[in-house]
Structures are given as structure tokens and as C-alpha cells.
Write a protein that binds this DNA or RNA. Structure first.
Lengths: 202, 202
DNA sequence: GCATACCCTATACCTTGGAATAGGGCTATA
DNA sequence: TATAGCCCTATTCCAAGGTATAGGGTATGC
């Protein structure tokens, strides 16, 4: 029987979900409520056939937390499960090496078939999260660089800090901040960060 | 058999949850994925014995959305179910007339007994969300004025603007910004805004 | 080749944010 | 009454954010 680890900090959600997957009768499910606990369980019980990590739980970060898990659960698939349906998160997760991206808006039966698919070594991600390169109507159409800067802003970093991280001059960051703020119709960086969060851009 | 309505936009979470509650054998469960759909169902099928509303779903607002639901589902309890465990949201929900507040971090069995309690006309809310005197590391415990300023920050307003709105001097705003940033362990106003959003403080 | 879009840099200037320090007035409570 | 917490103000100073303008380098596509 295939062994699955589900990590999510919402006890209610995780346990009912684990129950649901167990009821399919094909899987044994273990649970963790944060990243550290997940890593501990993997080391204690051996690698799982599939690990599902909530994108938002204590200790979890992208890409760091995902990379740690991939390393610990060597050679077995790790997928991200996320409440907020964000194409950008999906892309970054897959680019980092995740085997899949499961939004919490998918139907339960779809989840089961996705789990089977992942266990078979496949990659799972809903269509709409992959072909969203093109902006579908309300996407403000930020350039890759502007997205980099926006992420920095959202983490509360100063321009100088972002500049160091991206290895460019501070003035350049200021330029990006200005243009991305205009595109988002934000009045300043803080506003831009909040808008980005609102429309699930980050 | 008591009739329950669950409204949550995450299909996966809602359906597994509905399954779980149905399995208790005592309840019939209907589902909605946003506020409007909930109101429609109540009007079409008659009032439910209990309505559980997700705090974060399309159309949902506090207090407006809750008030609408309370009115439509006249004389029957409506409870808020929330992913992020925020004492402030809990207090506002209960103050508006919600019969209960259920964080998604509670255990599934606790949920079932809470549902029974609510159906019996009781009020349910975890202790720790009501006696928020003690801040257990998580609760930033901001003063009312600091909350005012925080709201301004989150709207992308400048200090000068917030000062005008609250009819005080700009320096005063700066003071509040500094102290609330310290309490939230934020490095600046943007960071504070993002943290506030993360923990659903606003 | 030419236009376009993106990315980077530079200079200069002004506004805003934020730290530090010091107090006064108010209210609730021990 | 004294203590504490909150709210407001003040002054000073430096760091950071933001605007404006001008340009260079490099791809891509017509």
C-alpha cells in the first residue's frame, strides 16, 4: 500500500482530507502540521511515496522549504497544495522541482486521481495554471524583473536590499518600483504590495 | 434530521468536510461556494438549522455578508468558519450576531460537538479567542489607535493622509507606525501591512 | 535596417519614513 | 495617591522612497 504524507496546519482540513484519501482504500496516510514535523517524519519513517505540502503553514517557504523536502524525501514526488489559486506560485513550485500543484478548489474525486497520477511518477497541474502566461484580462502584465522586485517589496525589503539580492543598482529598483506601481495603479510600494496580495499575484 | 449549509469556495475542503459531517449520521448537508449562492439556497430551500460561512470566500464580508445571512436565515444560527485563527475576527463575528466561530485548526471531533452545540442554540467559540487579554506570542495586541493607523497603512495611505483622517499630527502617526511595527515584528510599514494581512488582523 | 520592449545606469532633487528623546494630559486601577 | 497604559505633541536628524530626465545595451520581430 502506497504511503502518503499530508502536511497542513489546519487540523480540521488535514484530518478530513486524510480520512477522505484513506477511504479510497489504496493509501496509508500520515500527517504533519508544519514543515519541521514533516521533515522529521520522513527521516523517522523513511521516504514517502508522495508528500503533499501546504503552501501556507509554519516554516514553509518557496523555494527553500520545498527544496529541503525534496532532498529529504529523495527520489520521491513532492507536491504543493495551496488554498489561494495563484498561477505564479504554481509555476515557481513546478520550476523548483515539485511534482505537482493542487489548488484546494479542485473536486475531491479529481484529487484522488491526481494522487494516483503523481504516485505513478506523473506531473500534475491544472491547465489554467500553466497556460496563464498570457494575461487573461486582468493580469497587470508585469515583466519578470518587475515581479522579482514586487516579491521583494512584499517581503518588506528595502530597495537597497532588493538591489543587492538581484545584483543591480538601487536606482534600477526604484525604476521598477515606479513602473510596477503604475501598472498596478498603486500609489506607493505598500499599496502595490497589498494590491498584489489581493489579486493573488504573488 | 437537522439541515446544515456549508459555504466555502474551496471545493476540496468543503466537500470532504461535508462528507465528514454527513458521516456522523445525524445531519443533512447542503453546500455553497460563495455568499450569493448561500443566500439563494436559503431562500429556495427554506431556512437551515445551521449555516457555516467561510470567512474568506467570494462575496463574503464582515459584518455585511454575515448580517445578510442572518436576516435571510431568520431565527436560526449562523457561524463563521475561518482558516486563519484571528481573535479579532472572532470577536467581530460574535459581536455582529454570529452564533459561533470555528477556526480550521480545531480537531474534527471537536467540530462535530460544536455543531451539535450550535444546533442546540448554544454559542461556540474557543476559549483562546475570547480571553485575548494574554497575548500568547501570536496576538500582537494592538491598541485601537494602532489599528486605525494599520488600516490606513494597508490602504496605501501616507502618514500625512492618515493624520488628516484621524485628525492628529503626522508625528503621532509616525509614533504609532513605529510601535505597531515593533509589535508585529515588522521591519517597516510595508512589512507590517503584509503581516497584518497574513494573520487576518485587518 | 528600424522599431519596440526590456533592462540597466546616472544625476539631481524633493518628499516621506523612521529613530531617538522628552514630555503633558487622560483614565483606569491597585 | 500612585502607577501604568494610552494618546498626543514636539524637535532633530538621517535614511529611504519617489520623481524626472537622459541615455546605453540587447534582444525580438516587421
Amino acid at each position: 500500500m502506497k504511503r502518503i504524507l499530508i502536511a497542513d496546519d489546519h487540523d480540521l482540513v488535514r484530518e478530513t482530507l486524510a480520512d477522505y484519501i484513506r477511504n479510497a482504500g489504496e493509501f496509508s496516510v500520515d500527517q504533519a502540521s508544519n514543515l519541521d514535523e514533516s521533515l522529521d517524519l520522513i527521516q523517522k519513517n523513511g521516504t514517502y511515496d508522495l508528500v503533499l505540502l501546504d503552501y501556507k503553514m509554519p516554516g514553509m517557504t518557496l523555494p527553500e522549504g520545498l527544496l529541503q523536502t525534496l532532498e529529504t524525501n529523495a527520489d520521491h514526488p513532492v507536491a504543493i497544495i495551496s488554498g489561494t489559486a495563484s498561477p505564479d506560485v504554481a509555476r515557481r513550485a513546478l520550476a523548483t522541482g515539485a511534482a505537482g500543484f493542487l489548488p484546494k478548489t479542485i473536486a475531491p474525486e479529481t484529487l484522488i486521481s491526481a494522487v494516483r497520477h503523481l504516485l505513478g511518477g506523473g506531473v500534475y497541474a491544472p491547465q489554467q495554471f500553466l497556460e496563464s502566461d498570457r494575461n487573461d484580462g486582468q493580469n497587470p502584465n508585469l515583466t519578470p524583473r518587475e515581479m522579482d522586485v514586487l516579491r521583494g517589496i512584499c517581503e518588506g525589503k528595502a530597495n537597497k536590499e532588493i538591489a543587492r539580492d538581484l545584483d543591480v543598482q538601487e536606482v534600477t529598483i526604484k525604476l521598477h518600483v515606479k513602473t510596477l506601481s503604475r501598472k498596478l495603479q498603486a500609489r506607493n510600494r505598500t499599496h502595490a504590495a497589498m494590491i498584489a496580495r489581493d489579486i493573488d499575484l504573488i
